[in-house]
Design a protein around this nucleic acid. Structure first.
Lengths: 349, 349
DNA sequence: CTTAGCACTCGAAGAGTGAGAGTGCTAAGT
DNA sequence: ACTTAGCACTCTCACTCTTCGAGTGCTAAG
C-alpha cells in the first residue's frame, strides 16, 4: 500500500462523487497529480480492488469505491479545504435567522441551515431540554371552560396544552391551583419530572381531582413531552431528488424514527459516518449518514447530522457538520467563559 | 350526447383510475352495466374523443380521459357512495386525536387526517386567527436578560417569542410594561392589529424604548404572524410515491407556497377541482387539486384540500373533503346552536 | 517498476422482428 | 336508424441480435 495507490483511491472517490460514472484508468491517468500511465493506474486499481477498497460494476467498466473505500477516504485521505472567514460568517448568519434567542431555536436553525447547505436531509436529536429547569408554570383561562397550561424551561422553550374542564374554575380555585403548581414544579429539573413525581402530584391534589383532572393530565403529558427528546428532520424532501436513493426506502426511513433515534443517542464522540453495511440495516441503500454530538457545558446533550447519497462531497460536508456542532456547543453552553450566546456579527474563533 | 356515452365516459374514468392503463373497447364492453358490443363502444368512444372528453396516447391504445373528461365525470357522472355511520365515526375519531381543544389543533388534525386517508398531500390555509381576539398578553422573564412574550387568542392559539434585552428590567418596569400591554392589546381583534396600531404603541412607549425596544419589536412580529395566515402542508411526501408526478415539479410546487396561497384564498364556494390546464400553470403536471372552504360562524375563514395524482378516486376523496370542511365549520363556529366544539363521541348529523 | 500493445469482456444502444391490443371502417343484421 | 361481426390496419412492447466502445488484464519490452 503505497502513496500512489492512496492518491489513486482518493481520485476515484472524488471523480465518482463528481460524475456518478465508474472511473476508468484513462481518466485517472489524465488527472493532474497522477503522473503515471493508464497501465500503471490499472495495476494499482487491481490491487485496490484486491484490498476491498474498489469494485467494478461489471468487467468492462471503471471502478467505484466500496464502503471501505469511502471510509478510508474519509478517515485519512480527504483534504477538507479550510473555511475562509467569509464562509464562517455566512454560516454564522444562517444560524442567527430571526435572532435565535432560545436554545431550541439555535438548534432548529442550525439543522435547517445544514439541510439547505448540503441539499441533504438534516436530523437532530436534542435532549438538552432534560438538562434544563422548569422556570415557570402557568394556567391561563382562555374562555369557555378551556384552560391553557404553560411550561417554560430555563432553556427558553415553551410547551403548552389546552385542556377542557367540565366546569369553569372560580378565580380562587384557579389561583390556588396555579400557585400550587408554581410552588411544586418551578425550579425542578426536567430530568426529575419523573412519573413518580407526577403520581405524587396527583395524590396531593386528589381532593380536587374531579374538577381539575384534565389539567393534571395535561401537565403529565407536557412533562412527558419535555423529558422525551424529539427527533426532528429538516429538508427530507431533498432526498427525493437523488436518483440513487429509493423512494420507498426513504419513506420507510423517515417513518421509523425510533431506530434512528436509538442510533443518534448512542454515545460516541467526534464525527461518525454510517453506511448501509448490510441489507438489514435501517440505513437507506446507497446513502450515507454523518452525525456529530454537540455538548452543553461539557455534557453530550444531542446529536445532529445529515443523511444524503453515498456520493457526497465529504470534504465539504463534514467540516460543515463539525462547525455547526461546535457552534451549537458554544451557543448553548452555560459557562460564559468557554462559550455563550453572542449577538450576530460577533466573532467566534 | 346520450345516456350510454356518459356511462362509457364514466367507465373509462373509473377503469383508468383503477388500473392506470388506457382503457380499450373490449374491457368496457365486458363491464356490467354496459350491454352493448365492443364495436358500439368504439363508435361512442370515437364520438367522445371528438367532443374532447377522451384521448388516445397512440393509435392502437385504449382511451384515457382528458381534463374535460375528468371535469364532466366529477361534476355530473360520479356517484359518491354515501358514508356509513361507522365511517363517519372513524373520521370523527381521527379529528379528535389528542382531544383537539383549540381551533388550530382541530384544523391541523383534520389536514393530517386527510393526508393519511387519501394518501395525498393535504394543505390548509387558515386565516381564522384573524377573526379572533387577543385574550391575553404576557411578558415572562426567563433569565439572563431574556424575556418571553406570549400572545394568546380567543381561538386558543398561542404565539410566543423570546427577546434579549440589553439590561434586565426591574420588577416594577416589568409589571408596568406587562400591564400596559394587557391594557392596550387584550380584547383587540387580531384583524385590528394593524401596523398603525403597532406604530401607536411604539409612539406611546417611546420614552422607554431604549430599554424595551426588542420586546416591542417582538410584539410587532408576533402580531404580524397572527395576521398572516399560514399555509400548512401535511403528507407532502406521499406525493413522491406516485409514478406519474415529476419529483422536480413536486419540489417546485411545495416551495412556491405563495401561488398556492393566492389560489386558496380566492373566494369561491363549494368544492373546487384544479388541473394543470396549461404548461405555465403552477399546478403539478398530471396532478389534481381539490379544495374546499370552511367557515366560522358564516364567514369563510380558510380552505383545505388535497393534492394528488389526476388518477384519483374522486368519488371517495371528494366526500371526505366535503365532510371534513363541514366538520371543521361545525367545530369552530361560535354559535352553539348551529355547531360548537363537542366532545369526542357526540353525534353530528 | 513502468509502460505500450493487444486480445478480451461486457454493457449500452440501435435495428429488426413478431405478437398482441386496439382501432376504424364496412357490410350485414335487427 | 342503430347495432354488431368481421377484417385490415396501426402502433407499442418485449425480445433478440448485432455492433460499438470503453475498460480491463496480461505480456513483453523498456
Amino acid at each position: 500500500m503505497n502513496e500512489r495507490k492512496l492518491k489513486i483511491l482518493a481520485a476515484v472517490v472524488e471523480e465518482y462523487v463528481r460524475t456518478g460514472e465508474p472511473v476508468g484508468s484513462k481518466i485517472l491517468a489524465a488527472l493532474p497529480g497522477i503522473n503515471v500511465s493508464a497501465a500503471t493506474v490499472r495495476n494499482d486499481m487491481a490491487a485496490l480492488e484486491q484490498l476491498g477498497y474498489l469494485e467494478q460494476p461489471h468487467t468492462s467498466a471503471g471502478r467505484i469505491p466500496t464502503i471501505s473505500g469511502y471510509r478510508l477516504y474519509i478517515e485519512q485521505l480527504m483534504k477538507p479545504p479550510g473555511m475562509s472567514p467569509e464562509e464562517k460568517q455566512r454560516l454564522d448568519s444562517m444560524l442567527a435567522i430571526h435572532g435565535s434567542v432560545t436554545e431550541e431555536l439555535v438548534i432548529q436553525n442550525a439543522t435547517a441551515a445544514l439541510a439547505e447547505l448540503t441539499q441533504c436531509a438534516a436530523v437532530v436529536s436534542d435532549f438538552s431540554p432534560q438538562f434544563s429547569v422548569i422556570s415557570k408554570v402557568e394556567v391561563i383561562p382562555t374562555g369557555r371552560k378551556i384552560y391553557m397550561i404553560l411550561l417554560i424551561t430555563s432553556a427558553g422553550s415553551i410547551k403548552n396544552k389546552a385542556c377542557r374542564l367540565e366546569f369553569d374554575l372560580t378565580n380562587e380555585q384557579l389561583n390556588w391551583f396555579s400557585g400550587y403548581l408554581s410552588e411544586n414544579l418551578e425550579g425542578i429539573s426536567v430530568a426529575d419530572l419523573s412519573d413518580e413525581l407526577m403520581a405524587d402530584l396527583i395524590a396531593a391534589l386528589s381532593a380536587y381531582m374531579m374538577a381539575i383532572s384534565p389539567l393534571v393530565q395535561g401537565i403529565c403529558e407536557l412533562s412527558r413531552d419535555l423529558r422525551q427528546h424529539a427527533l426532528t428532520f429538516k429538508g427530507e424532501k431533498n432526498l427525493f431528488s437523488y436518483q440513487d436513493l429509493d423512494r420507498m426506502e426513504i419513506i420507510r426511513f423517515i417513518e421509523h424514527k425510533d431506530e434512528l433515534s436509538r442510533l443518534l443517542d448512542d454515545s460516541f464522540s467526534g464525527i461518525r459516518v454510517l453506511f448501509q453495511e448490510d441489507k438489514n440495516s435501517f440505513v437507506i441503500g446507497n446513502s450515507s449518514m454523518i452525525v456529530s454530538k454537540y455538548r452543553k457545558s461539557g455534557k453530550n446533550v444531542g446529536s445532529l447530522g445529515v443523511i444524503g447519497p453515498m456520493r457526497l462531497d465529504y470534504a465539504k460536508v463534514i467540516p460543515y457538520i463539525e462547525y455547526f456542532s461546535q457552534k451549537i456547543t458554544d451557543l448553548i453552553s452555560e459557562n460564559p467563559e468557554e462559550g455563550h450566546i453572542k449577538k450576530e456579527g460577533d466573532s467566534h474563533d
